[in-house]
Design a protein around this nucleic acid. Structure first.
Lengths: 344, 344
DNA sequence: GTGAAAGCGCTAACAC
DNA sequence: GTGTTAGCGCTTTCAC
């Protein structure tokens, strides 16, 4: 930290500063190969003194290795993906691998360009949300020549590997739980996300689960944009105005579910006696609501960790061939205080 | 998309596939220089057909230019930084610049390593949260030789440029608003974040603002970890048990404020008559609560946009020398329904 | 409008 | 344990 260089420092600068060949300096800085303790300290001192920061661009080009892992997700706005990222980060913690995240906003074209940009940095692997992609995206993933883990969802076939839960099954399970408690007049409240395939599959599984018992959804409503809590309130009000005899409301996520919960409590509705409700995700954020919302835990952190482990395995020196390439987590359904009918 | 190559494709592959020199192929792909329409189409066709993805590593090394901007933030877990990112993204939208985010978890050592790693990719600029950094971090920023914008906070001196709000002033303003409404027995509830300098400055400004009117905080409490909503409830209960005569509670963020709000309503407390409350941030998420929480909007998106604009300016071909290097946004204080004493 | 040569800063592979 | 040589895949520069 001796100068304020216009030109970034190079290995050569360090080499000259300590009278050791560039090659040896490089070895010291990468802790690779055998270097005598004496030169090691000299080099380290010089590098620190100068404030040298290695140039990974050159390094990666020369070594044909990049420690970057592309992580492509639809959004950072809800709590779900940050938690997946936390899992990925944790798993990469004592490896040289580094996640680089790209956000698609649920837009297939954006997914395409984001993936293209990331692939142009020749990452060591890709972790990407969902199993549904544009043809071009699919092609890029297939031809990338690096491990690709598709996450969140396992209802479909991965390009290479997948880790997630079955949203269809989650929907079915919730349907079963609701019917088991004796609810029969059921409404569905979702965010309008034509491209959120996981929400769609959950909905499909849900209707299917009801159908098995000969039940049909009585009403449904889809909104988008705005504050989720507020939307939850508004949707609930609107739905109950036009379908006042519903006895259960299934929300496509916990946030709008919480809004619905608050609205119903405001109205003096008896929950879960008169009306039961449930959401989806298990966001810890919401502990602290007047009632514990029934929900399905989506195993977000675990998914991130497992996906990262596949990448770590595949990029390691001796990949375990038995590493499973399809991991379906079992989400936990918690009834909370809002999905227990008082029988009789 | 004709093969599934083990070895990634290079310019040379495209060159051979279409019988045009590598150089010209490169020009086409970068839309630089004049190329005849005929060859242009030939090259593009070949590249697409093969599924060629340019190697930015090689490109950046050769051109000595990298379109990456390092964005270093403490966390993705609360809504605040994702909104800053959204602002940055929006501003970069029609530039070649690409944000790459690193997360520090409020840990100075992690900030140091994250910055080091990012600088080793030779980004075109750095956007980093906060003005307080370790000496090593400070040194790296100073010597990076690229534009550096420190964001969120303007109570201090930036290495290069800064965009944010004065948290000290925000605290003072809230104190003033509270006193103006006639509240006098005031408690403060914060998350225990010794390294969250912005929360600290807000607290300092707040106590200072009270002191001007000869008022002192009567009680304070700091928690950390867990669900913010739940913590808000618990802290509120605990504080009111030991200091039952408080008439105002100032929370260091909206989420714990919301928890407090729910708790007080549960207890049948008259808000804002008996007790007034306020949070900080203006998170849209919370619209939909039973009461609109008083809060200070922290201009998160605007801060991201303004910071990005500075980077865009500085890395452009002809930087505007008049571009301000210190932008202090004026946050809006909204009283909501929880900070209006019924006088008399 | 197109091509050939040189080199970006580093590391693999091999000498010593 | 240390140094030398070549070359990673592109772009810059300059020639044609």
């Amino acid at each position: 930290m001796t100068q304020s260089p216009k030109r970034p420092l190079t290995l050569r600068d360090v080499s000259e500063a300590c009278g050791v060949s560039e090659m040896t300096v490089s070895r010291v800085l990468r802790k690779s190969g055998d270097v005598s303790e004496a030169t090691r300290t000299r080099v380290l001192a010089a590098a620190k003194e100068l404030g040298y920061v290695p140039n990974q661009i050159a390094g990666s080009l020369a070594s044909q290795r990049v420690n970057l892992v592309a992580v492509i997700i639809p959004s950072l706005g809800n709590m779900v993906f940050p938690e997946v990222l936390a899992g990925i980060n944790a798993a990469f913690d004592d490896t040289p691998l580094q996640p680089v995240v790209g956000v698609t906003d649920y837009l297939p074209e954006k997914e395409e360009t984001v993936l293209y940009e990331m692939l142009s940095w020749r990452p060591s692997g890709v972790i990407i949300a969902g199993l549904e992609h544009s043809e071009a995206t699919q092609a890029m993933l297939t031809n990338a020549g690096i491990p690709v883990v598709e996450i969140m969802d396992t209802d479909g076939n991965p390009v290479d590997a997948m880790v997630g839960i079955s949203h269809r099954q989650a929907g079915r399970d919730m349907a079963r739980a609701i019917l088991r408690e004796g609810y029969e007049r059921i409404g569905f409240l979702g965010t309008k996300m034509p491209l959120d395939h996981r929400a769609r599959k959950r909905f499909e599984g849900f209707t299917e689960g009801l159908a098995r018992e000969g039940i049909e959804i009585e009403d449904r409503i889809f909104y988008h944009g705005g504050s989720a809590l507020l939307k939850g309130r508004e949707m609930t009000q609107e739905m109950l105005e036009r379908s006042p005899d519903l006895d259960f409301l299934y929300y496509s996520n916990d946030m709008i579910g919480a809004g619905g919960l608050l609205h119903l409590l405001d109205q003096g509705v008896d929950i879960p006696g008169q009306i039961g409700i449930a959401g989806f995700n298990g966001v810890e954020l919401l502990a602290g609501l007047p009632r514990q919302l029934a929900t399905t835990d989506a195993c977000r952190r675990e998914i991130g960790e497992a996906a990262a482990r596949i990448i770590i395995n595949d990029t390691g020196s001796e990949p375990d061939p038995d590493m499973p390439r399809s991991v379906t987590m079992k989400p936990t359904l918690s009834l909370g205080d809002t999905l227990r009918r008082r029988h009789g």
